[in-house]
């Protein structure tokens, strides 16, 4: 089982959108996928057909049996464990549990994830939050999601420091990738930012940015994954390429990027 965590230093970059939609694409490619929301915004489920306002979730307060039962009842292509709606006090309680017990999240996840799951796509809150830290600790693959703008470029060092801290001392280092989302090729600023980010991140920045496309929002509004809503769009093509890229073993990957760059 592999954990793929979607993180970003700033909000609104598209972590939730990417996690949900990559989940659908990977599931359709034959992988056994699970979506896990560790962001108190509890938004991941809305992409995957879970009604908003549900209390049940990964956060402290639902029993493992409840979650397992809920998972088996789900009919969607990608089973999803929501975060669960929590009020402020619940959240504070949950965070202090996490702070006190560094293995809590891991144990909880292992308790509820169905056996045979290959990939767990995990959504996280923006910035450095307790939840993010704990997700990163379990992650095998970390995907940094960025927008092609100056603000995101400015947060690159913060992000790098956060990842660096996470990876330090770990025996099995996670694979770290960066994705540019909502790319607007027609904007010179966006292209220049991509160029700069590439200089900065090198091969870690995957070669296929995901273009900005209004259908992404439309699909969400209709509670459909984009891959179903408008499968022929450039955004979906990019997501597909991205999904393949994230799973390529490291060695192949380097060769692949070298080829593309030539």
């Amino acid at each position: 089982m592999k954990f793929i965590a979607f993180v970003s230093a700033k909000g609104g970059t598209g972590r939730t959108t990417l996690a949900a939609n990559l989940g659908v694409i990977l599931a359709r490619a034959g992988h056994r996928v699970l979506a896990l929301d560790c962001d108190p915004q509890n938004a991941l489920g809305t992409h995957l057909g879970i009604p908003p306002g549900l209390r049940l979730g990964i956060a402290e307060g639902s029993s493992p049996d409840e979650i397992i039962e809920y998972l088996t009842a789900q009919r969607g292509e990608v089973p999803c464990i929501p975060f669960g709606t929590r009020d402020r006090d619940d959240l504070q309680q949950a965070e202090s549990t996490l702070l006190a017990d560094s293995g809590w999240l891991m144990r909880r996840v292992l308790d509820v994830v169905p056996s045979g799951t290959e990939l767990v796509l995990v959504d996280t809150p923006a910035g450095e939050r307790v939840w993010t830290e704990h997700v990163l600790e379990m992650a095998n693959v970390i995907v940094g999601v960025h927008l092609p703008d100056a603000a995101c470029f400015a947060t690159l060092p913060v992000m790098a420091a956060m990842l660096e801290r996470q990876c330090r001392g770990r025996e099995l280092k996670p694979a770290v990738w960066h994705v540019l989302n909502q790319m607007e090729p027609r904007s010179k600023l966006a292209r220049d930012t991509e160029f700069l980010m590439r200089r900065h991140l090198g091969e870690r920045l995957v070669p296929c940015p995901v273009p900005r496309d209004p259908v992404v929002g439309e699909a969400w509004a209709q509670q459909l994954p984009v891959a179903l809503h408008s499968p022929t769009t450039g955004a979906v093509a990019a997501l597909r390429e991205l999904s393949e890229h994230l799973l390529t073993p490291l060695v192949d990957l380097q060769r692949h990027t070298a080829k593309v760059c030539r």
Partner: peptide
């Protein structure tokens, strides 16, 4: 692989 972007920002693979 190429992409076409229409005037409303819609992309086509």
């Amino acid at each position: 692989p190429a992409m076409v972007e229409r005037s409303y920002g819609n992309t086509v693979a």
